[in-house]
Design a protein around this nucleic acid. Structure first.
Length: 508
RNA sequence: GGCCCUAUAGCUCAAUGGUAGAGCAGCGGACUUUUAAUCCGUUGGUUGUAGGUUCGAGUCCUACUAGGGUCACCA
């Protein structure tokens, strides 16, 4: 797959050749940069604001050429770096004929330049660099899509652009180079994750790293990716969760731990699923799921404050208030309110299946009781939960790591929380009774066999850890990608992943 | 995996079954305060791939590939 230059690229290659013939290195090493573009603009504005005598501000700025406008012996260019954009004001009688000719003939849109000169304001008021010398820093051999902008009534209107979703994902570097709003999404992603860290650090949590390659996968129900260690002749799994490794650390006398990292699930891809995704899990000793709810709502509100400066955000046109306290209601109440079914009136899988059939709700036979309840949740309740809501007390048979609700054999102390009609996280008062945990594992194994599903491997070492004594604790898992979606008002996970998973394209 | 939609110039998009076009970008030219600069001229296409129907296919049909949507799957 060698590069076949198209016509536009061939023209740029010719320019490259001409530059070399004139002794100009199109990819020089040394660069002089005295100001970022933002600094240069700020320095000039500050001087104007103080009304100081015109002491010229000398700058050397670097960046990519985003636009070129030429009128005879005077030209303008927009130069952009990672901090902003500034206009270059290029007069032939200032830069000299040779440089001016170079600019007009052999420099292209998207080339990287170094421009030295003095800050000034043009007649039409645009802060600019009056260029004294101009130097090519890197030639762009392939043209990027041209994007033009115009200020209309204070709003920036964009013309042209780069919108093909597939190409944007496959060539994210071009997407980022062209679309400033996409760059902003990933800045907010970084802010979101660092805010999560800061919050948990301040709450006394210890950040840890646990294995991605696991001998036994667990902590969730999902098919894993399998890999192999050659030297050890051992199959290994990419983790589907870090739950069991983190809770072992509570046995080891850390009171509060968290991990932010990648999980891998060998399942379908959708607007909210990618085969690898970023998860946050945190566990704290001596709290139950009520304490976990307090932490969760404060965490999300803190993140919004840090990213947006407010807990009031807009997602998909909905105004959402993230400040605590969030609404809390039980799963049973939520379902009863949404579709009129009280699942406790149908306390077995068979009875609940019959009820769904009687109401013409499409479903499947032979699922565990809790699965039908989960289906009702997904069908009737989830889409309605726009404002942040904790849904509490889940069926025991689909929650093997959660402690039971006292005097209630069918429910466990588990919550999920929903915002904007989407699930964001899952949490429990963690089960710390090793004998009960073993029974749950065996129950799950039986249900998997009945459901003709892959059997979840039994983690004996986890049970051993628990037998040494695990403090009572609450734990929460939050999908970080979805949190970033919420913070950036993006409606597919692919918009918040730099390199989302795509099918391989035909070999060229 | 099922169903629906999409694929045309570097980019964004047009084109009743009847000669594939525009804007931007590019190339040549004019222009010393432009900012979607403007003006004149101009290059650029195996219409995703492979078949089929037809006198004639970008357009209709089939398959494939990729993407999007949706359903299924996914604690």
């Amino acid at each position: 797959m060698t590069w076949q230059p198209n016509k536009l690229e061939a023209e740029r290659l010719e320019k490259l050749q001409r530059l070399r013939e004139r002794g100009i290195d199109p990819f020089p090493g040394a660069v002089r940069r005295s100001h970022t573009i933002a600094q240069a603009l700020a320095a000039f504005s500050a001087q104007e604001a103080h009304g100081e005598a015109a002491q010229p501000i000398e700058v050397a700025v670097c960046g990519r050429v985003r636009a070129m406008r030429s009128s005879g012996k005077l030209s303008f260019a927009d130069l952009e770096d990672g901090t902003g954009k500034v206009q270059l004001f290029i007069r032939q009688d200032r830069v000299g004929e040779a440089t001016y000719e170079l600019f007009k003939r052999d420099l292209d849109l998207f080339d990287f330049l170094q421009a030295e000169g003095t800050m000034m304001r043009t007649r039409s008021g645009e802060i600019s660099v009056e260029v004294r010398s101009l130097r090519l820093l890197a030639k762009a051999l392939s043209p990027l899509p041209v994007l033009k902008e115009q200020e209309v009534d204070g709003k920036t209107v964009t013309y042209g652009g780069f919108t093909d979703v597939e190409e944007r994902y496959r060539q994210r570097y071009a997407d980022l180079a062209v679309n400033a709003d996409v760059r902003e999404v990933f800045r907010k992603r970084a802010k979101t994750i660092s805010a999560v860290r800061r919050f948990l650090d301040n709450e006394g949590f210890l950040e840890v790293e646990t294995p991605i390659l696991q001998k036994i996968y667990g902590g969730a129900a999902a098919r894993p990716f399998i890999t192999h260690h050659n030297q050890l002749k051992q199959d290994l799994y990419l983790r589907i969760s870090f739950e069991l490794y983190l809770k072992r650390l509570l046995v080891g006398m850390y009171d509060a731990v968290y991990e932010i990292g990648r999980d891998f699930r060998n399942e379908g891809v959708s607007f909210k699923h990618n085969p690898e995704f970023t998860m946050l899990e945190f566990y704290k000793a001596y709290i139950d799921y009520n304490g976990a709810m307090d932490l969760t709502e404060r965490l999300v509100a803190y993140v919004a404050e840090q990213v947006h400066g407010t807990t009031q955000i807009t997602y998909d046109g909905n105004a959402i208030e993230l400040a605590p306290p969030w609404r809390r209601l039980t799963l049973r109440e939520a379902i009863r309110a949404a579709c009129g079914i009280d699942y406790m009136a149908h306390p077995t899988a068979e009875a609940l299946y019959a009820e769904l059939c009687a109401r013409n709700i499409p479903t499947r036979p032979n699922l565990p009781w809790g699965k039908y309840i989960e289906q009702l949740m997904g069908d009737f309740v989830e889409p309605t939960l726009i404002q942040p809501t904790f849904i509490l007390d889940y069926p025991r048979d689909i929650s093997p790591f959660a402690k039971g609700v006292p005097d209630d054999p069918l429910h466990v102390q588990r919550f999920e929380f929903y915002i904007a009609g989407m699930e964001f996280g899952n949490a429990f008062t963690e089960l710390n009774d090793p004998l009960d945990q073993e029974q749950r594992f065996l129950e799950m194994a039986r249900l998997f066999r009945e459901g003709d599903d892959d059997e979840a491997p039994l983690d004996e070492d986890y049970l051993r850890a628990m037998r040494y004594g695990m403090p009572p604790n609450g734990g929460v898992g939050i999908g970080m990608d979805r949190l970033v979606m919420l913070m950036t008002d993006r409606h597919t996970i692919r918009e918040v992943l730099l390199y989302p998973h795509l099918r391989e394209r035909d070999k060229e």
